[in-house]
Nucleic acid binder design. Structure first.
Length: 173
DNA sequence: ATTCTGATTGTTCTA
DNA sequence: TAGAACAATCAGAAT
């Protein structure tokens, strides 16, 4: 019976060992019925399981994690706990300076850009197949477009042109 | 057999 | 404005 919120709380013992801020993020559902818990109070107007709905773009931390996981597993073969990488990653992440996080943030920004694009297409899809045109609900992201012209090959690949080495080491601490 | 959990932080989203 | 939810992951726990 302990669904998502049922247990959570993680280990309290570690709380004393590691004075981490309150981690209220122990809730994530890959694909279940608990729709946002309390968000969709009324009917299923917005929060509905949309298989086409683009997932949120990975934050800089997640981008870093993806790479970190490889390293972590490379040095820790055998560790199968996802939490292990999470903890180690979080610790390392805080160890990085802005300059080091910059590349990750840049990548994250890119992902976000794609996310918007996906959302754009997704919105169109919704509008196309929208039962009730609730309209105005969307994010007003309507840009002149001819739906059919969604094949914009805009591969703005910035390989490595601006490697602004901000020497501003703020991590003096 | 399928669904869910843990653990991290950052971003997105809703009321 | 502020808080909640969720993004990846992966193998084990649970139903």
């Amino acid at each position: 019976m302990k669904n998502a919120k049922g247990k959570g709380a993680a280990k309290i013992s570690k709380e004393a060992l590691k004075p981490v801020d309150d981690r209220k993020v122990g809730k994530r559902k890959a694909s279940s019925k608990p729709e946002r818990s309390i968000a969709p109070k009324a009917k299923k107007e917005k929060a509905k399981k949309d298989p086409n709905k683009p997932k949120r773009p990975p934050s800089a931390f997640f981008v870093f994690l993806e790479e970190f996981r490889k390293t972590f597993k490379a040095e820790n073969p055998g560790v199968k706990a996802v939490s292990a990488v999470g903890k180690a990653g979080g610790e390392k992440w805080k160890s990085l300076s802005n300059a080091e996080k910059a590349p990750y943030e840049a990548k994250a920004a890119k992902r976000k850009a794609e996310y918007e694009k996906l959302m754009n297409a997704y919105n169109k899809k919704q509008a196309s197949s929208a039962d009730d045109e609730s309209d105005k609900s969307k994010s007003e992201i309507n840009d002149e477009d001819d739906e059919a012209s969604g094949e914009e090959d805009q591969q703005e690949e910035e390989e490595d042109d601006d490697e602004e080495e901000d020497e501003d080491d703020e991590d003096d601490d």
